[in-house]
Write a protein that binds this DNA or RNA. Structure first.
Lengths: 385, 385
DNA sequence: GCCAAAACTGGAAGCGCTTCCAGAGTTTTC
DNA sequence: GAAAACTCTGGAAGCGCTTCCAGTTTTGGC
């Protein structure tokens, strides 16, 4: 604590401050002494290790002073603006190097109205769901794309009401320059929240029944057709499907793709069970299908997880794959290689999904009008069909 | 575009600006007209859809004016500072509600020197690695803990030199209030970078050979002993181990735990192979072990992935599990349930790891001196041992 | 009803940066 | 050789908020 003498001049305020101090947003290790120097560093008592050493970064003013130019001139050098003489530039650059100057992000953000941060919002209702490698791959893609810019990535798991409130707040307080939204269920309130914020927004996967101005998506419908046509080409005719949640666009599109392929081939859907993209659910759905359509000879599952569950159920039921029943999945995110037999599946490039979304967002933020993107899918043949 | 009349007064500057405009950091949809009102909203030409509708958020000044009080009074109300009369508070709160005011995050950050953002840095060398559910679980835990504060989470995949440079820059420009660092290899340059930044830092898992001031870790050593002791209790004596990378603390500690358990039981290690926590590597290691120690009757693998690979190799070699060879893994992150047979393994609570790390960081930022934490592990018995 | 103490208030000074613009100097143009 | 065009420069005005503090009003004790 500062010595009493520093304080004795003041009375009421100090007492108030002493009480109030903890609750204010003052930076750590900051004590107030008079008005001149508000920051007092290294005032730790003996034995207390410091949380950090906030050796103050030099400011632009200090750089300018050292270089013997005005602050504006220094700023111009840093921002590579024109109208800077060689001499000025050199002097400033020298000062910058010597002082190890780096512009303060926050101050710049305030002046430019750009935070340099974009958000990726994931509506995860339950933690398990976020563990899906799908999210990880999107994040990897997004990061890769952002690495080429000077934007940083803020991750929002907006599930609960609390999480959504935080997100709303983040957007409305202009905490980010733009936002990427992961695939949503039909009536997710996030859509509204984000639209209301009026910030550049890119969707990763489309929400159900609305086409956002900007989105990146996989060709779910085409992929599902690919898968179904493959089964048809194999000579299967009694083809069932296990869908994902039909309240998501991906689930719905994949179901539609299956139906279209069947209709075009002159076949009729032979059993449909709705799942939720999880393995257990796939197994349950498969058992239900075997019950209702014991003669089925093929299954298109709307995800690899579902397909893995289906394989399990088929094995339990004593059906051999692919001899008795051919199975095709969707996603190709690692699981497919590890099933027995390995899964024939539709590949979607999730990293690219993230990468393109990030690039698109950057473009939108820059005021451009990029086109939305639908990424192609392709069939990967393995043992199950 | 603004009508020519607006511009004709100006000559040189306008032309320069017209050329330079794109390169500046000006907010989108902002045109400069005179000095009075810099923001001109909704000036889009016909047919051009707006990227966003930046209907300007009200400022504190406007709220204060509407409430008929000074800006400081309004600020005090917002920050729930004392010394605000009932009347003032009511007036300000009314104005806030009516105008839908929310304080600008950036401005507040500049004034308080606190960004309200913490970073989670993941040194992922390769994308596949980040797909490990471990990371997802940590993130879920961290998010859960942060949800109770008003901090947001910035995710940094700092792999390449570029990524590291970005991280360095983020820290040195005071872009975040603190940072969580995921487990590192022995000599990761990130350790240094972060230390140099002098920001509150919490490690998730310890780096090799140094104990950071603040960390959260699982009891890797204890868990490995648990696993090995279990095998010993089963009557196995020729127990081999497949380690993780010994250049990580987790890998090393689990290996040490195995050795200690063996020594205490008066047994000698019966074959050691170093892996890298991946399944393929586990299979390769198992094959090598079978080669060098054909008579082994148990294996402790330092991760479930390694164990899964080992199971595969054992099956290929015609050894039955657990009859011929008992296997125990480590992690219990989903894989363990899906192997054949299901894996007996050591459970670590990765979500809690993240949760505690976030809580600890919050405490450190608040200037407290929390104690580091080592979370307990426990054995989960399934079919493989 | 008086006086000290407490509560309250608004003006002003920051936080660290970008950008405007007038003025000074330099080059080009005819 | 004067006018026109350009290049540089630094002072000043922001960006939107928090916090200090001097001054004013209210409270409470006697």
């Amino acid at each position: 604590m500062p010595s009493p003498t520093v304080w004795e001049r003041q009375t009421y305020w100090d007492r108030f401050r002493a009480r109030h101090h903890r609750r204010t947003l003052l930076p750590r290790h900051v004590l107030i002494i008079g008005t001149i120097n508000r920051r007092l560093i290294g005032q730790e008592g003996p034995g207390i290790e410091m949380a950090a050493t906030p050796r103050r970064q030099p400011t632009l003013d200090e750089v300018a002073e050292r270089a013997g130019v005005s602050r504006s001139a220094a700023s111009r050098v840093i921002n590579k603006a024109p109208h800077v003489s060689r001499a000025t530039r050199d002097a400033v650059e020298k000062a910058i190097k010597e002082m190890g100057y780096l512009p303060n992000r926050t101050a710049r953000a305030l002046a430019t109205q750009q935070t340099g941060i974009v958000a990726l919002a994931v509506p995860h209702d339950n933690p398990e769901l976020f563990a899906d490698p799908f999210f990880a791959q999107v994040i990897v893609g997004v990061s890769a794309a952002l690495e080429e810019t000077d934007l940083h990535l803020l991750l929002c798991l907006a599930s609960s009401g609390r999480g959504r409130a935080r997100l709303t707040n983040l957007l409305r307080t202009r905490g980010v320059d733009g936002i990427m939204l992961m695939a949503l269920h039909g009536d997710d309130p996030l859509t509204d929240i984000v639209a209301r914020a009026g910030l550049p927004t890119v969707y990763v996967g489309r929400p159900l029944h609305t086409e956002p101005r900007w989105f990146v998506d996989s060709d779910n419908l085409g992929g599902a057709r690919l898968a179904t046509e493959h089964l048809i080409r194999l000579g299967r005719t009694r083809i069932a499907t296990i869908t994902g949640q039909l309240s998501t666009d991906a689930g719905e599109a994949r179901y539609r793709g299956y139906r279209e392929a069947m209709i075009i081939a002159g076949l009729t859907p032979h059993g449909t069970a709705e799942g939720d993209f999880t393995e257990d659910c796939g197994a349950a759905a498969m058992r239900a299908l075997l019950d209702s359509h014991p003669d089925l000879d093929a299954v298109f599952a709307a995800s690899d997880n579902l397909a893995a569950g289906a394989l399990r159920a088929l094995a339990e039921a004593g059906r051999s794959v692919p001899a008795d029943v051919a199975v095709v999945g969707f996603d190709n995110l690692g699981v497919a290689e590890r099933t027995d037999p390995p899964l024939t599946t539709v590949h979607q490039s999730v990293q690219d999904l993230g990468k393109e979304a990030a690039r698109m967002l950057v473009a939108v933020i820059a005021g451009q009008q990029p086109a939305s993107i639908i990424l192609p899918t392709r069939l990967v043949r393995r043992g199950s069909a």
